[in-house]
Amino acid sequence: MATHVILFAILASAISQAFASDPSALQDFCVADKSLQVLVNGFVCKDAKLATPDDFFFSGLDKSGNTSNKFGSSVTPVNVNQISGLNTNGISLARIDFAPYGVNPPHTHPRATEILTVLEGSLYVGFVTSNPENRLYSKVLNKGDVFVFPKGLIHFQFNNGTGNAMAIATLSSQNPGVITIGNAVFGSKLPISDDILAKAFQADKKTIDWIQAQF
């Protein structure tokens, strides 16, 4: 009996992991009530009778983002923070604009798989698998090409052309989150000790201090 209980517990754990995702909706919709200061896993629903078409609407995705920054890229997100009606629906998207040789630097989405569609220009994209393999899967994408970045894995996009590029990313979470590796490691508040970073990256402290200063 004890063996059966253990096996059942292992199976239940495996099933729960296999189906882990944003919480499923238990009604037609759950428009986020952002006026309430209540901490839950997502947003509290407002009264459905008070919902309006604007709760399900966003305008401006046709406009290019400002790429005049050090990365030469711009992300225009459309998640639950922009569309309250996305709450509990487990999906979002973003427009990504690239100047020539612009990069969306290595980052992860801790809560979402991403599928990227190139609509303009050409992009070199890739993701890296987890330890210990750390294998890079990369490909050059042209207009109309699609590429998937598995949930939680570090990935990037780089405009390898001389013209502008643009892509649409769809993500499997209403609020996928983003962790840009450089910002998180070298620009954390409070900063990670340069002793730790020097040992982790096998570099001297002066190099680490210089990199931290860039963030």
Rank of each mutant, 00 (worst) to 15 (best):
A12V: 11
A48K: 12
F149D: 01
T3A: 14
A2Q: 12
G42C: 04
H107W: 09
D97T: 12
F158C: 07
F147Q: 02
H155W: 05
L36M: 12
G60N: 06
F149C: 03
L141T: 09
N104I: 02
H109W: 09
I168F: 13
I168R: 01
I196A: 11
Q37M: 13
R135P: 00
G163V: 05
V80A: 03
A32H: 09
A14D: 12
V75I: 14
F71W: 13
L61G: 04
A112I: 11
I15R: 09
K151F: 03
C30H: 10
L123T: 08
L36Y: 01
G161M: 01
S138K: 14
S138E: 15
A167V: 09
A18C: 10
G126L: 03
Q214V: 04
S24E: 15
G90L: 01
K199S: 11
N175G: 07
I6D: 10
I181E: 09
D209Q: 15
A213V: 00
A99Y: 04
P106A: 13
G65D: 07
D194Q: 10
F29W: 14
I91N: 08
Y101M: 13
Q27P: 00
F57T: 15
A32Q: 10
Q82N: 11
N160A: 10
V125L: 03
P77K: 01
L136A: 06
F43T: 02
L190R: 10
G90N: 14
S84T: 09
M166L: 12
A94D: 02
L26M: 12
K151C: 09
P100D: 12
D209L: 15
K34E: 09
V80I: 12
E114K: 05
A99P: 01
L50R: 10
H155V: 05
G42L: 04
G126F: 05
A203C: 01
G60M: 05
F8T: 09
H109G: 05
K46C: 09
M1I: 08
V178M: 06
Q202M: 12
D194P: 00
Y137W: 06
V44E: 14
A198S: 15
P77W: 04
I168L: 13
P53H: 10
F147C: 02
A51I: 11
Q212M: 07
S74V: 00
S24D: 14
K139Q: 14
G60W: 07
P176G: 05
V128R: 05
A20R: 11
P105V: 08
N160P: 00
N183E: 07
A165E: 05
L11G: 09
V128P: 06
S68I: 00
F158D: 05
F156D: 07
N164T: 14
F58Q: 08
S92L: 03
D33V: 02
A20M: 11
A9P: 00
T207P: 00
S74K: 06
T207H: 03
C30A: 08
A12P: 00
G60K: 06
F8W: 07
F201A: 10
F98S: 08
N160D: 10
L141F: 06
Q37C: 08
F149R: 01
D28C: 04
D204Q: 07
R95I: 15
K206Y: 04
L50T: 15
V185R: 10
